[in-house]
Design a protein around this nucleic acid. Structure first.
Lengths: 224, 224
DNA sequence: CGGTATCCCTTGCGATACTG
DNA sequence: CAGTATCGCAAGGGATACCG
């Protein structure tokens, strides 16, 4: 059971569950779709199995996630968000945007995961820039994610999207500066920090449709 | 130094600081205004001095709070939010609303603090219901807070407000059900769970201007 | 009053090994 | 593949004592 703060306060109740180690990252991964135990473990490098087990149990006890029978013919269970858990999605996105403001470049031991990339795309999305329904694929080395714009927002996911792809962006950590607007797409193309395949028009819209500002107080190279 | 997750991810960075024990509650209190060490300690029942010291230092290192010279003639230092910290306020409110959805009645060991009450008011506020600038005082036993509506939102605080008071509400844990809309003001008046002093008209507007829904799945008496 | 310094105890975390 | 069992270690909780 997670630690309580002994206060009759919504924030205190939230903190007692979400403040546990790894909890927010487990939820980020599950916010992108149902996952099996092993998926989560692979997607969260460094998480001890015992901790993952404990977090999943606590989150289930609090009605934030639930175990489901797997989709059609697959074996094992999957963990999935409940409605109550899905209510957290915009908050996770806001927290991610806030944290990213001071995150310019990866630290020595920082890795990117498909879920973190997908989450970044979701939290970066600004409606109204891209009028059509399009599918964008982003590849940062082995890390793959996609975003599909819809009339009411954006759907994102880890891995490879179903259906046709309108734009593929291949990049690395430079993606952070694209999202920040501190590196223009054409510059990035010139230096080879980034490549694309598909609609040039869509490519040019990308930095306005997906944007997470960078705090001006952050200087290049520093990022805790 | 707070624990990192080794991921190049805004949410992971946020979680590494905000996930530390007591961090979110320290920030809730500071989001209501500058506080001295002792203020925080009194307002956060159960926090060990060592942990408060550590959290304050970490939050300062991350540029979320800062130490300031005290206002005019008082001695000692005060801790206050930086701009970066203030950016968290809407997120804290959203988290508080989310946590409060499953919080119907106080647990046996749950206390209310002036900061938690003030925070509840801020997160509950819905613009557009109260047209004027008014000051509302809420007393739940020894716990005092106030809210002043303004054209662009609401200002809240712990303790007693400056200036004239348009409405005083005296209540207890029943306040949660007023905010939820599961207890009508007139009912509460009849049972004595609540009393008010001041504008009746404003009193009747209150539940619409300050609202935090309660999850229907929660049954009376249960609240972890 | 605003902390720092210790001490002891308990808990949770992280790593590894192992079982259904 | 999906966890449980175990264990050493670091950190938090709580009390108390003490400095500026």
């Amino acid at each position: 059971m997670s630690k309580d703060y002994g206060q009759f306060c919504g924030l205190a109740k939230a903190a007692s569950v979400l403040g546990e180690r790894w909890a927010l990252l487990v939820l980020r991964d599950l916010s992108l779709g149902p996952r099996r135990f092993g998926d989560l473990q692979k997607g969260l490098p460094g998480i001890p199995t015992t901790v993952l087990t404990t977090r999943l149990r606590e989150l289930e006890e609090h009605g934030i996630i639930e175990r489901q029978a797997p989709p059609l013919g697959r074996r094992g269970l999957v963990y999935a968000m409940t409605d109550h858990g899905r209510d957290l999605t915009p908050i996770l996105d806001a927290l991610g945007r806030w944290g990213a403001r001071r995150m310019a470049d990866p630290g020595t031991h920082d890795v990117m995961t498909s879920s973190s990339l997908a989450g970044a795309l979701r939290s970066a999305y600004r409606p109204g820039v891209i009028p059509d329904e399009v599918t964008i694929r982003v590849a940062a080395g082995p890390v793959l994610a996609w975003a599909r714009t819809t009339p009411d927002g954006v759907a994102v996911g880890a891995g490879i999207p179903d259906g046709p792809i309108d734009l593929t962006i291949t990049t690395g950590p430079a993606m952070r500066h694209i999202l920040a607007g501190t590196l223009s797409p054409s510059e990035a193309l010139a230096t080879g920090a980034l490549a694309f395949d598909g609609s040039r028009e869509l490519f040019d819209l990308f930095p306005r449709a997906f944007h997470v500002p960078l705090d001006p107080t952050i200087i290049q190279g520093e990022s805790t």
